[in-house]
Amino acid sequence: MEKAIKRFWPVFVLPTFAAFLIGFVWPFLQGLYLSFCKFTTIDKAQWNGLKNYLYALTEAEFLHSFWFTALFTVVSTICINVAAFAIALALTRSIKGTNVFRSVFFMPNLIGGIVLGYIWNILLNCALTLLGKPLLSLHAPYGFIGLVILMCWQQIGYMMIIYIAGLQSIPNDYLEAARIDGANDRQILWRIKIPNVMPSITICLFLSLTNGFKLFDQNLALTAGEPNHLTEMLALHIYNTFYARSGAVWKGYGQAEAVLFCILVIAISLVQLRATRSKEVQQ
């Protein structure tokens, strides 16, 4: 059977592979090469060695955007997961209307980043005006808090779904046995529920970590990096280095920053792979 299928590779593999070459492999390799070059268009690339990387690693704005992104990611990861887990716990008790609540909390997840960003931009700016405080784009801490609120609103529902699936897969026997042995609610939560949903927790933590690091649309729509690039996250910073500056050197810097960004995201994913694998062994 394998031989019969093998002969049909032009039918089965070629369409996807050709599109994959155009849409991923070729641009990726070219991008890797260009990160060592000085260029404005692809044809006019001059070899530049490691200069782009050296510049990127010392540029204050890039480093600021890195720390801003890291801080944002940590804060939003904690907020999202604590809230999502709490809601999932509440929704797995037999309360009336669980399905309605679940649908409502999940809904923002389907709306795109640009639209979400504008919705919250309008809402938060109105609230700030009424409170007599500076607008989002004028005061960086508000921009930061706004981004965290926006991400919570969008992601809590998603993580909640994963936690609910995890909580529902705990065999009821465990809970009953614990109750018969006289465990109280807190003990059941810490000794039975949390250890048993560890796989879900790992998945959610890494999902929110990578989502936080890769965030672009929401950042662009909510604050656009204002004031003065202070709320600019990595992805947006790279975008602005590419497209918002004129001069022969910037595209090279942007590409080098993009490669560093890529390495960072890949590293996080590798750690995730490790973590999920070792969890699987334990079970």
């Binding site: 994959f20 991008g31 692809i42 992805a235």
Partner: peptide, 19 residues
């Protein structure tokens, strides 16, 4: 294919649109 899932779009954006 699995590798391509991880790579952020910013890595490709310039070269992809040029291509």
């Amino acid at each position: 294919f699995v590798f391509s899932m991880v790579v952020p779009f910013q890595m490709l954006m310039f070269t992809l649109s040029a291509t």
